[in-house]
Simulated scan of single mutants.
Amino acid sequence: MTIQIGETLPQATFKEKTADGPVEVSTDALFKGKKVVLFAVPGAFTPTCTLNHLPGYLENRDTILSKGVDDIAVLSVNDWHVMGAWAQQTGGMGKIHFLADWDGAFTKALGLDADLSAGGLGVRSKRYSMLVEDGVVKSLNIEENPGQATVSGAAALLDQL
Rank of each mutant, 00 (worst) to 15 (best):
A29S: 14
L30Y: 15
F31M: 05
K34F: 14
V37P: 05
L38D: 11
F39K: 15
V41D: 04
P42W: 09
P42D: 02
P42V: 04
G43N: 11
F45W: 06
T46Y: 12
T46R: 12
T46M: 13
T48V: 13
C49Q: 03
T50A: 14
T50I: 02
L51Q: 10
H53Y: 09
H53P: 13
P55T: 13
P55Q: 06
G56P: 10
G56Y: 03
Y57M: 03
Y57L: 01
L58T: 08
E59A: 12
E59F: 01
E59L: 05
E59G: 00
R61N: 06
T63E: 15
T63A: 15
T63Y: 09
I64H: 10
L65H: 13
L65D: 15
K67G: 00
K67E: 06
V69C: 10
D70H: 11
D71C: 08
D71K: 14
D71H: 08
I72G: 02
I72N: 02
I72P: 06
I72S: 03
S76T: 06
V77I: 12
V77W: 03
H81P: 05
V82I: 09
V82W: 01
V82L: 05
A85W: 09
A85F: 05
W86T: 08
Q88Y: 12
Q89D: 13
T90C: 08
G91I: 08
M93N: 08
G94Y: 06
K95D: 00
K95T: 03
I96G: 06
H97D: 01
L99K: 01
A100P: 11
D101V: 02
G104T: 11
T107F: 11
K108F: 04
A109L: 07
A109S: 15
A109R: 04
L110N: 02
G111Y: 10
G111K: 09
L112R: 04
L112M: 01
A114G: 02
D115L: 05
D115M: 06
L116T: 07
L121P: 07
L121M: 14
G122H: 08
G122Y: 05
G122I: 11
R124F: 00
R124A: 01
S125H: 10
S125F: 09
K126W: 12
K126R: 12
R127W: 07
R127S: 05
Y128A: 15
S129R: 00
M130S: 08
L131N: 10
E133I: 07
D134Q: 06
V137L: 14
K138T: 10
L140R: 14
L140H: 14
N141V: 07
I142W: 02
E143R: 03
E143L: 13
E144A: 15
G147E: 11
G147N: 13
G147W: 00
A149H: 10
A154C: 02
A155E: 15
A155R: 09
A155K: 11
L157G: 03
L157C: 06
L158C: 07
L158K: 07
D159S: 10
